[in-house]
Structures are given as C-alpha cells and as structure tokens.
Design a protein around this nucleic acid. Structure first.
Length: 427
RNA sequence: GGAGAGGUGGCUGAGUGGUUGAAAGCACCGGUCUUGAAAACCGGCGUGCGUGCAAGCGUACCGUGGGUUCAAAUCCCACCCUCUCCGCCA
C-alpha cells in the first residue's frame, strides 16, 4: 500500500508507475481526496482543542467551587460537541475513502522491469540446460499419469468437482517426494526455517499480503468468514505483521510446504485438462523479510534457490523477467521460472519469485528498528515459490517418461522414494 | 458448546471519571566516573495524523469498533484475542 505522502511528494513518479502498470489511478485524484481530508482534520482538531481547554477549565472551576462558572462553560462545550460529533463521522468517511482507494492500487515496477502488456512481453533472463529434441510421441502428463494408474481425475471429480485430482500409488508418492526434497533442500542448504502454518487466515492477514480487498473472488472463503490460503506466502509473510523487529533478527527466511487453494474464478476454460491448474495444489513457498538495502540481492538469491531445485532435478528451464503488465499486485519485480514440458512442447511457469519492497510491510505494519536503536522503518518482503509440487510433478513425468510407459525417478528424489528407480504402469 | 479471568508504551507492570500520554522497573540512547569494561550516578527515551522552513504547537491513540459524559485507560455495548476449568473431540 502506498503512503499518500509519498504520492504527494512524487506525483510524476507515481503516475508514471501506474501507467506502466496499465492502472488508472492518478496522483491528482488521490491528492484531491487527501486535501479534503486534511482540510477537514484541521477544522476538527481546532474544535477539539477548544473542547479540551474548556473541559479542563470546568475541572478547575469545580475544584475551586465556582459552580456558576462551571455551568456556563458546560453550555459552551455542548455546542462545540455537536460539531465534533459530525466532524468525526466525516473524518472517518474521508479517511476510509482514501484508504479504500490506496489499498486497491498495485505496486510500482522497479525501473529495470521491462515495459509491456502481458506475458508476450516478458524477457528471457537466462536459460539453463538444453531442451530435449522435439518428439512427436512425447505425451502429456495426464496421459502418462493415467497410464501409470496414478492420476485419477474421474474419482476426484466425483468427490470434489472439476479442477481436482486424486493421485495414487507411485505418482502420489512422487509428488510427496518432490515436496520433501524441496523443503529439505531449502532448510538444509539455503538457510530457510521450516514453518507449518495455518491454512486458514483472517481478513487482516489476507489484506496484509494484498489478496484483499481486491481479489477476494480468487479465494475460497469458509462459512465462518475465514479464507483458505492461496499460497503459504500469506501466513508466512504475515508472521511479522504488527511487529517491530530487532535488526539482528533480519534477514528472516521462512519456507513451508502447504496445500494452496484457489478458486480460479477468472480462468474458466483455461488449462482444464490435466493438473496444470487446480483448485488445490501443493507448493513449497519461500519468504524473506529483509532490510530495504538488501532486498534486491535477496531476490537474486531467492531465484537461485528456486533454480537449484530444477537443476538438481535436471530439468531444462528458462528464467523470465516479467514485464510491467504481467506482474502480480504486490510485486515490484518478478522472475518466473518456466520449465520445459515435452508433452506440451512449451515452457510453463513452475516458480515465481517477487520482491515487494515495503508494499506488504505497510499493509501489515511490519517494521524494524534501525542501527540508531530508535527510528523505525518498514521491512521489505519477498516471496517466491520454491516450486509448486504439482507442476514439478508434471515436469518430472513429462521429462522422465520412457517409451514403455514407465517413468524414471530422478536421482535427487530416490532417497524419498525408497530408492525406487522407476515407476511402472499398474497391473 | 458452558463457566470464569484478562488484554496498558520495546518488555514487565501500576493506574477504576478531571493537568494521566499514562507511576515504577527493565531494555535502549547521551553524559559523569573508569586505563577499558561493569557498577553507580545524571539526563533523555512511544506511535500515527494535522500544521510549520524549523524549533515547536495541536490532535488522536491504553486489544478493535461504536456509545455515554463538559471530560474516558477508567462507565456502557458489540466484536477480536489470550488464559483457566468443564463438556466434546483427531
């Protein structure tokens, strides 16, 4: 969320950022809102000053036994009170009007983010490994999974409806192995602390990371008013909400392997086949809470952590810098890792790492104490998938499928698969 | 689900209608002392908002949101959270 004072001081930077975002918010409208709020606050405070001084005078008059004077003063304050009453209502209205406007505004891209409209304008940052030779026979993951008897969409649909899958046997274990492998890698090699967070959160938490108020339709809501997390980023990042962190606790690096729930409200008809886009999927998430001056380095570090997963699985992928029009609401800069899927003959997003600056920290009110031991500043937050297990499963199946229908288990996963070397078709 | 207790500044913890933004201690910052450190002593030390070039001034804030009152941390209402006991339960 933006600080209105920053917008007042940097209107052209703000407008330029909004333009790059293809967003229609403009500084002049917000400043006008703030002007009317400020003007009103000043008037209200003057009235409050008079009320306070007069009230103190009443106290003094009572103390000295001057009842007549006290009564006179009471009558005087009564009138001021009327104005204050309505004035406070008006202040609340003006403040929430401004806050509502501010909380719906996306973050501004960093200067080095390529300009663009949608995914077609994303820029290749680096490519790792070689794409397998084109193959006519390459199968899609759901063909492979179903042939193994390990990917049951029909039963899942009977149980829960569309966009769910039921995994069985070796395939189910393979997904679990991927999750275990990734979270072990991040905790033992990359310095992240493992967290097992709640999967349901309250409004304020979903607001903190930017899901609310604008994207409530993308989330599942429980009957008692909570939200199913769409990513562990939400609870992990909010662990520092409303806190003042000591300098020596930073950086804070957290990881979690959790189910994620998304309504996919806006994507009817897209990726309906297979398990590319599900209402429920598992993901290893990475979150860093960091000092502002370190946040850009941390983004590179985080991408490296995510890339390491794919390198260890020996998967070919490319890392993309998202263009200004393709980034998420809270992000200032985002790298996507796109893994090569032979079955689709295409690169598909498998991980996404973003730096949010103080955008989320302001929403959450997460601050830290500076070196002087006194002043406070907002932390910076970063989040990234240390790879979604569902999509990693897809990638492994499509890249490790053999002609006879079996799937070779990647070396890195064997310790988690009871040293199994291949998953064979059922029966 | 039933009964009770409680939420005060970075932390601990006083404070039940009138100079209380809030005692005290700890932590922290500056200073004295010391070869240095510790201890001791002296001083300082909340946040948001408004206003101002600034010093400052004003205002709001004692879980959150409303209300009563000339005046609320203190009284009333609703909600949130924590703890204890009982019930139920993986």
């Amino acid at each position: 969320m933006f600080d209105i004072r920053w917008i007042r001081e940097n209107p052209e930077l703000f407008d330029e950022g909004m333009e790059r975002r293809n967003h229609d918010a403009r500084a002049i409208q917000l400043i006008a809102l703030d002007d009317s709020r400020r003007g009103h606050v000043t008037k209200l405070q003057e009235a409050q000053t008079r009320r306070n001084t007069t009230s103190k005078a009443i106290g003094a008059a009572m103390a000295s036994g001057d009842k007549v004077k006290a009564e006179d003063l009471k009558a005087e304050v009564s009138e001021i009170k009327q104005f204050i009453q309505s004035g406070e209502d008006e202040e609340r209205r003006l403040t929430s009007e401004l806050n509502d406007a501010l909380s719906a505004i996306p973050n501004i891209p960093l200067d080095d983010v390529p300009p663009g409209k949608d995914e077609n304008d994303n820029v290749i940052y680096r490519v790792v490994g070689d794409a397998p030779a084109p193959s006519q026979n390459a199968k899609e993951h759901f063909e492979i999974g179903e042939a193994l008897g390990g990917m049951d969409f029909e039963t899942a649909a009977n149980l829960a409806g569309s966009r769910f899958v039921l995994l069985r046997g070796g395939v189910a274990r393979l997904e679990r192995a991927l999750g275990q492998f990734m979270i072990d890698l991040h905790t033992t090699q990359h310095g992240y602390e493992e967290v097992a967070p709640p999967l349901l959160v309250r409004d304020a938490v979903a607001f903190g990371t930017g899901q609310l108020p604008k994207f409530s339709e993308d989330l599942f809501k429980t009957t008692d008013g909570r939200w199913l997390i769409p990513t562990a980023e939400v609870p992990l990042t909010n662990t520092v909400a409303d806190q003042i962190l000591d300098l020596d606790t930073l950086p804070l690096r957290l990881t979690a392997l959790t189910p994620c729930f998304r309504s996919e409200a806006g994507s009817a008809g897209r990726d309906t086949r297979g398990m590319l886009r599900q209402h429920q999927f598992s993901k290893v998430e990475l979150v860093s809470i960091i000092k502002p001056e370190k946040s850009l380095d941390e983004l590179e570090r985080m991408v490296d952590c995510a890339e390491t997963v794919l390198k260890k699985l020996d998967l070919h992928f490319r890392t993309m810098t998202l263009c200004s029009g393709d980034m998420g609401f809270s992000a200032r800069k985002t790298y996507d890792l796109e893994v090569w899927l032979p079955g689709q003959q295409a690169y598909r997003e498998i991980s996404s790492c973003s730096v949010c600056g103080d955008f989320q920290a302001r929403r959450m009110n997460a601050r830290f104490r500076l070196e002087d031991g006194k002043s406070l500043a907002h932390v910076h937050t970063l989040n990234g998938s240390g790879v979604a297990t569902g999509r990693a499963l897809i990638a492994v199946l499509e890249n490790y499928a053999n002609a006879d229908g079996s799937v070779t288990v990647p070396d890195a996963l064997r310790p988690y698969m009871g040293n199994l070397e291949t998953i064979e078709p059922a029966g």
